[in-house]
């Protein structure tokens, strides 16, 4: 005889069946989001839902910050002003030299019929925080689709390349730092002109260059800048400095560790550049350097004046 009491009331599916249902749904979400990236719209909707909560949670910190600003003494401000003025004056000769160099480069490029890459315009965005996820290296910006931010735009700080906008919400956006595991940056070794790729390690403060052959001329202290060949980052942005080079005779590639130049956690604001070029292959006109038509078509694509 069964000791189970008779079920008088229907209680829906059994708990185990429900558990299987929700687990299957969650696993489906994980696969669709992580592998197929098809849940971006859903994520945006959830983020819009969370915006008022986020604003409320941010308010105490912002109030403290405002209070701190109000307490800044006049002498502090004057000292900072003085320092900035000095910095400006120190950088003035470099700026003037840069202008003449740019003119020279332009002339040379015209002689060689090379299409010159125009440096894109940008928008200054406030950093509102770090993504609350210890598995990724991301920062959150306080502007999003409301200010016309685009996914894929490069992000800069005073010192160098910070990363790339990867998620654009309505009022905020996420920037994957170059140290993030999924971010790859095409680089140029400034001293020798070597082209290579930098991969994030998934930990703060280091990058690695996995595909540099053992015999390559590279040493600690070398400066790495963006090469600009991916059509994503404009060329010549400072990215990282080589920390150490280990040449293991067993491996065909040297083990190279680099330190990113952008001290992103020091700043409150970053510069988000417009996207340089569409990733669409039909627009990738690298093969035919047509100086007359290419800049115009690019400007039309960007919706900007040439």
């Amino acid at each position: 005889m069964s000791l189970r009491p008779p079920e008088l009331f229907s209680r829906g599916p059994a708990p185990l069946a429900r558990l299987f249902f929700y687990c299957a749904l969650a696993l489906a979400c994980i696969v669709v989001d992580a592998h197929y990236h098809q849940l971006e719209l859903f994520r945006k909707a959830l983020n819009v839902l969370l915006t008022p909560f986020q604003t409320l949670a941010d308010s105490p910190g912002q109030a403290l910050q405002a209070l701190g600003k109000a307490w800044d003494s006049q002498s502090d401000l004057q000292a900072e002003n003085q320092r900035l003025r000095q910095q400006l004056l120190e950088q003035a000769p470099q700026m003037q030299r840069l202008q003449s160099l740019q003119a020279d480069l332009h002339n040379l490029n015209q002689l060689l019929q090379i299409r010159q890459q125009q440096f894109p315009a940008g928008i200054i965005a406030p950093i509102t925080g770090v993504a609350r996820n210890p598995f990724t290296q991301k920062i959150i910006l306080g502007i999003g689709a409301n200010k016309g931010l685009e996914s894929g735009s490069p992000v800069l700080s005073q010192e160098g390349l910070v990363g790339q906008v990867t998620t654009v919400n309505l009022f905020s956006s996420e920037v994957s730092l170059i140290t993030n595991k999924n971010v790859v940056v095409p680089l140029l070794l400034a001293r020798t002109g070597l082209r290579t790729l930098a991969f994030g390690n998934g930990e703060q403060g280091t990058l690695s260059l996995p595909y540099v052959p053992v015999g390559t001329d590279i040493r600690a202290g070398d400066v790495l800048v963006t090469s600009g060949i991916d059509g994503l980052y404009p060329e010549g942005l400072s990215v990282a400095t080589v920390l150490s080079v280990q040449r293991d005779p067993v491996s065909a590639f040297a083990q190279i560790r680099c330190q990113p130049d952008s001290a992103v956690f020091k700043h409150r604001e970053v510069l988000v550049l417009n996207r340089v070029q569409s990733l669409n292959p039909e627009h990738a006109d690298w093969e035919q350097p047509d100086t007359a038509s290419a800049p115009h078509s690019r400007a039309v694509r960007k919706g900007r004046k040439p």
Binding site: C23, F42, F135
Partner: peptide, 29 residues
Amino acid sequence: GGWSAFTLGLLADAADSSVLGIHALGYSL
């Protein structure tokens, strides 16, 4: 109900900008 664990998990995933479904799976279990 089970749906509340799942929904809370999804909201936590969106808030922490992690892959959608991770917290939902852990919370449901």
